[in-house]
């Protein structure tokens, strides 16, 4: 592994000040450390943000659940407050990676990385999340830009993610049996005025399936999407699943999510 300088930031301001065009923030490190080891990424400076107290914790109000960027998956999964307000979000967090990954990995890290098969981006999209950074607020729909790409600028630090509490919701994942990443993951959220069906794992980046969401907004039942055709031409195809198979999983897992709601 290439060498780097490790820094511990006291607050967001210091973290931002330490950052450069050749630096990365370190939270749980569940993706960044393996990437560094594999030589997929190299940095001059690594800025540890775990000691910034303000970035960790869970706040639940009547309408939203706000999770600090460095809050670990295990904390979200076991939070009684999250389990009550948005049970599907706690379930999603409890299904990421494995127990040890959940003891280190964080929500901020997951969405900043925007892995095409990560679970959290789908929750952000379905739950109309607002991503709070040290500079601004970004709507989830404008945050995820493409494969491993987000709207974050260099030195911009995610501080928290604010999820809108839906009327009903469910997350269904077809996991890769080794990594537990989603081959396809479907996050279904029924809000007062609309239904959002966000899909991860299927394409280069998370997206909301507009046709399925519209059909379910009009009629929240399996029959509304039974005969729907899924266009799989832009879907990922690899040794685990072909694009066509992923397309089929999107519909199957959406139905499972409706049933579980």
């Amino acid at each position: 592994m290439k060498t780097f300088n490790y820094h511990v930031a006291k607050d967001s301001k210091e973290a931002s000040k330490l950052s450069s065009s050749n630096s990365a923030f370190l939270a749980g490190g569940m993706t960044s450390i393996p990437s560094l080891k594999l030589g997929l990424a190299t940095y001059k400076d690594i800025i540890d943000i775990k000691h910034i107290k303000k970035l960790s914790g869970i706040k639940v109000s009547n309408k939203t659940v706000t999770i600090g960027a460095t809050t670990k998956h295990a904390e979200v999964a076991s939070s009684k407050e999250v389990q009550k307000a948005i049970p599907s979000l706690a379930k999603l967090a409890g299904g990421i990676g494995d127990a040890q990954v959940r003891n280190r990995g964080t929500v901020g890290g997951s969405i900043a990385n925007n892995d095409p098969s990560a679970c959290y981006p789908s929750a952000c999209m379905a739950l109309n999340a607002i991503i709070h950074t040290n500079e601004r607020k970004i709507e989830a729909s404008k945050f995820f830009k493409g494969m491993f790409e987000t709207a974050l600028k260099k030195g911009e630090l995610i501080e928290s993610v604010e999820f809108q509490i839906p009327e009903k919701s469910n997350y269904q994942k077809h996991p890769n049996p080794a990594s537990r990443y989603a081959i396809v993951g479907v996050y279904l959220a029924k809000h007062k005025k609309e239904v959002n069906v966000a899909i991860t794992g299927a394409k280069a980046s998370v997206y909301v399936d507009k046709d399925i969401s519209k059909a379910l907004s009009n009629n929240f039942s399996i029959s509304a999407i039974n005969n729907m055709k899924i266009n799989s031409s832009e879907m990922n195809s690899d040794i685990h699943a072909s694009g066509e198979y992923r397309g089929s999983l999107v519909l199957t897992y959406t139905k499972k999510a409706i049933e579980a709601c």
């Binding site: 490790y6 370190l26 490190g29 569940m30 450390i33 393996p34 080891k37 690594i46 295990a74 127990a99 040890q100 990954v101 003891n103 280190r104």
Partner: peptide, 9 residues
């Protein structure tokens, strides 16, 4: 807490 030491500095 259990963690994977190969992915931690």
């Amino acid at each position: 807490k259990s963690i994977k030491s190969c992915s931690t500095l």
